[in-house]
Amino acid sequence: MARTLITVPRTARRDEIIEIRALVQHSMETGYRRSSEGDLLPRDLIRRFTCRFVPRVAANSSATSTAGDLIFAATFHAAIAANPYLSFNLRATTSGTLVFSWEGDNGLAQTETVSLLVA
């Protein structure tokens, strides 16, 4: 499990533009470097980051979607520094859950969730 540091305001006013920050601990090994013994270090990269927003479904609503809307995505390649940091913005319209996920080499598939309250 990679360690993450996600920063989202706990609450936001309706239609406020909020900043979201996501830092993840990852070596982003390019596959081109060699160890001090001369062996090629195997490639280990995060390939894709996505952030989705799942609105909180009102109890009397018939909506069933839980996948949410994609609000930000990034594709990573070699030459991105270790421990990549991203920041992006969202217009907060309704309360719900932000779902962050990092996917990549060696079966990396990590998901973190943070809830957002829109008053």
């Binding site: 360690r3 993450t4 540091l5 920050r21 830092l23 993840v24 601990q25 421990n83 940091y85």
Partner: peptide
């Protein structure tokens, strides 16, 4: 602190 990568280590500590 939200950008400082060392905070990942602090959090683990």
């Amino acid at each position: 602190d939200t950008q400082n990568p060392a905070m990942l280590w602090v959090k683990a500590g």
